[in-house]
Nucleic acid binder design. Structure first.
Length: 727
DNA sequence: GCATCGGATTTTTTT
DNA sequence: AATCCGATGC
């Protein structure tokens, strides 16, 4: 086992063989981070004789967990048995079910996904007679999620204005409703776990003792709740081994807090830091490009990354006429690489900022008849029929789950509409019981209940009996058999297969779900539902298929490919428009780009399009991404092949060096030299009255002005149309 | 209770 | 462009 270290460089050896105690490994991209983690586990078990069941290893995705599990097993064989290895959420789920007695929910709690949360919040907002325009469920949930990630309960939720106060009320009700549904959301899993560890010394000691060594991957993307969990678990032994890279921190929006690195160094004074700086993945060209990008970010520890893979192909920049052309060119280039260059299809990856960008690429691949793998996006588990099917199972497992009940009680239509449902809800509330439990009770024939329910009784009781039978099935049979019963009893097949082509597709999805279900014959329904909630579509990627991969830059973290395309290098897309006026967010966009670039082993291609279809439908001219300006010219080769070499407005020189020598519409007027409006100007508008100009900018010939109007708020106006009068 | 039509609306990333 | 929501009519 000692020769384990032979395969490592000196920094890696130092990291793997570090003494027990708080350790921080700052690992540049491609520096063998995963390797160090797996070897560290092997070292703990093989050399330091720590039994695997005393080790906890936390990863960021299930996929990473699976990979690590495989590698550890390869190194250790049977000795790896008993290790706890998984995502934060999976680990917390395990702890919470064990310790359910201490929770407001019981052991059979379900996990509400984003859709469930949205539905629930929408209901609550309506019940409170709040304006749905002012209180968007998404934004309220966002605020609640942020609070939970910061360990803020409703009691200490910061209230600075009326809106905060309302949100706090909604937060309280939301939590009550989750409990009534015997459910929790993703953030609750972390919050509850951290509370258990904080408030119950017994729990803290139990798990602190169990996990003698704690290893964490992607530490830069942990939030405060996750940090609190780690700190409490390591309170006695301090054996916290963290691996991360602040330059790859890309989940700030999800509560990730890079300050956790500082917190760790403050809380664990005796911690030791190890840097991994040798890159084994990329060519010098790619690494230099990456460094040029990331070095523009302020407030970071500069690392001196180096590689022995000198030189390498230059980075290619492709400027396409429009977004479809962009997709076509990427796919054409890949096809060429596969057929002429004899490259493996799976050595290619195409990355983009938003999932929506995958559509044109998919179409291009289909036109070319090339297989592809798509990570995330049109999510299998997000499909209606799949969600319905899962909702049936969830309801069987946990009848208190009102969201699932409402979802399926009338699927296929069985005469239970709004009226009936509200009657059920009302009676349930009256009896202080969940709707599901009320249904079950009705099924067993309770005269008083029937009286309360009145003429709605038969239909509801019938569904209650179905539910009761399914629950019986669930206790006796495998999930798949239960599933078949549900399908049969509801006439789901006929309902789905409505003779349309779409119906066929949907039915196939149902069958696919059943195939997944069969894998849970042994583990049972509970494990299946847990997996459904926690396994993201990221993880469903079929590894076997030898095909190019399409994925978001976020999903690309931790992966590597010989050939990487990053598409959509346009302002508003990368950096994304949502991040434009926030320095921190902008820095994160840059890191995201950096993550993408550093995924490439041999060849990097960046693409942009001169115009693209806006989400609203019409074509719009684009502006080159500011990140392009930071690329070292000597490492680049441009390509605007086949395009006319003159601007339609007569200019010979491009505005920016990234503008292709090609203009899309000859009819487009030349841009005015400067804006007519300036920030601070007083203006008058026909309907909004007096206002003050906040910003003004030129967008391919049109001047867009943002004006603040008293009583109307901020409005974005097109100067040429709005007839603004300067006062 | 259910289907259909028309109008409004559209926040990027994910466990 | 596509989807969702609400109102309307059956």
């Amino acid at each position: 086992m000692e020769d384990l270290l032979d395969f490592l460089n000196s920094q890696q050896q130092q990291a793997v063989a570090a003494p027990a105690g708080p350790t921080l490994v700052l690992a540049g991209p491609g520096s063998g981070k995963t390797r160090v983690l797996t070897y560290r586990i092997a070292y703990l078990v093989g050399v330091m004789n720590i039994p695997a069941y005393h080790i906890l290893a936390v990863t960021f995705t299930n996929k990473a967990a699976r990979q690590m599990g495989e590698r550890v097993t390869k190194l250790l064989g049977d000795q790896a048995e008993g290790i706890w290895l998984g995502t934060f959420h999976a680990i917390c789920g395990r702890i919470l079910r064990r310790e359910a007695d201490l929770l407001p929910v019981d052991r059979n709690f379900v996990i509400f996904d984003a859709d469930d949360q949205e539905t629930l919040m929408k209901n609550i907002i309506r019940e409170n007679n709040l304006d749905e325009k002012l209180f968007r469920p998404g934004s309220v949930l966002d605020a609640i999620s942020r609070a939970k990630n910061e360990l803020l309960t409703p009691d200490n939720f910061p209230v600075n204005n009326f809106r905060d106060d309302q949100v706090r009320r909604l937060y309280i009700q939301y939590q009550q409703r989750l409990v009534r549904n015997n459910a929790m959301d993703f953030d609750d899993m972390l919050l509850y776990t951290s509370q258990l560890l904080e408030d119950f010394p017994v729990v803290r000691e139990t798990y602190g003792h169990k996990f003698e060594h704690i290893l964490v991957d992607e530490f830069q993307d942990t939030n405060l709740a996750q940090y609190a969990i780690l700190r409490n678990l390591a309170r006695q032994h301090h054996n916290l081994y963290l691996v991360g890279d602040e330059d790859q921190s890309i989940y700030r929006w999800r509560g990730a807090d890079y300050r956790n690195i500082q917190r760790f160094q403050t809380d664990f004074k005796d911690s030791c830091t190890i840097l991994l700086e040798q890159n084994y993945r990329s060519t010098q060209t790619i690494l230099d490009t990456a460094v040029a990008i990331i070095d523009r970010n302020p407030n970071r520890t500069r690392k001196s990354l180096f590689t022995e893979r000198k030189g390498g192909d230059k980075v290619t920049l492709v400027v396409a006429a429009d977004d479809r052309d962009e997709a076509d060119r990427v796919v054409a280039s890949i096809r060429e690489g596969i057929t002429r260059g004899k490259q493996n299809p799976s050595s290619y990856a195409i990355m983009y900022r938003t999932n929506a960008q995958s559509r044109l690429l998919e179409e291009a691949f289909r036109r070319e008849g090339i297989n592809y793998r798509l990570v995330g996006a049109q999510r299998f588990y997000g499909r209606r029929e799949v969600k319905d099917a899962i909702a049936f199972l969830r309801l069987v497992y946990n009848p208190k789950d009102e969201i699932s009940l409402r979802r399926v009680i009338n699927v296929p239509p069985r005469g239970i509409g709004d009226k009936t449902l509200e009657k059920l809800a009302q009676v349930a509330t009256q009896l202080d019981r969940s709707m599901g439990e009320t249904l079950l009770e009705l099924a067993s024939g309770s005269p008083e209940l029937e009286a309360l329910m009145g003429r709605e009784t038969p239909r509801l009781a019938q569904f209650g009996r179905l539910l009761r039978d399914w629950r019986e099935q669930a206790s006796k049979n495998t999930p798949a058999i239960l599933f078949d019963r549900v399908v049969e009893d509801t006439g789901y097949t006929a309902y789905i297969q409505d003779h349309s082509e779409e119906g066929m597709d949907r039915w196939e999805n149902v069958l696919e779900l059943r195939a997944v279900l069969v894998e849970y014959d042994e583990q049972g329904l509970a494990a299946f539902l847990e997996a459904m909630a926690l396994v993201a579509d990221q993880d469903t990627l079929p590894d076997q298929l030898d095909a190019p991969t399409m994925l978001t830059l976020h999903a690309a973290k931790g992966l590597e490919f010989d050939q990487v395309f990053i598409t959509g290098l346009d302002e508003f897309l990368l950096p994304h428009s949502r991040s434009r006026d926030d320095e921190e967010a902008l820095a994160e966009e840059r890191r995201l780009f950096y993550v993408g670039v550093t995924r490439a082993r041999k060849k990097l291609t960046l693409t942009r399009a001169l115009r693209r279809r806006s989400p609203y439908g019409s074509f719009e001219a684009t502006i080159p991404s500011r990140f392009l300006d930071d690329l070292p010219t000597e490492l680049l080769q441009g390509s605007a092949r086949g395009l006319p070499s003159r601007f339609s407005d007569g200019r010979k020189e491009p505005y920016s060096r990234w503008e292709s020598p090609y203009f899309t519409s000859a009819a487009r007027p030349a841009e005015p030299a400067k804006t007519r409006f300036k920030a601070g100007m007083q203006v008058r508008h026909k309907t909004y009255g007096r206002g003050v100009v906040k910003t003004s900018r030129l967008d391919h010939g049109d001047e867009t002005v943002e004006v603040y109007f008293e009583g109307h708020g901020l409005k974005a106006l097109v100067a040429s149309l709005a007839k603004l009068e300067i006062l």
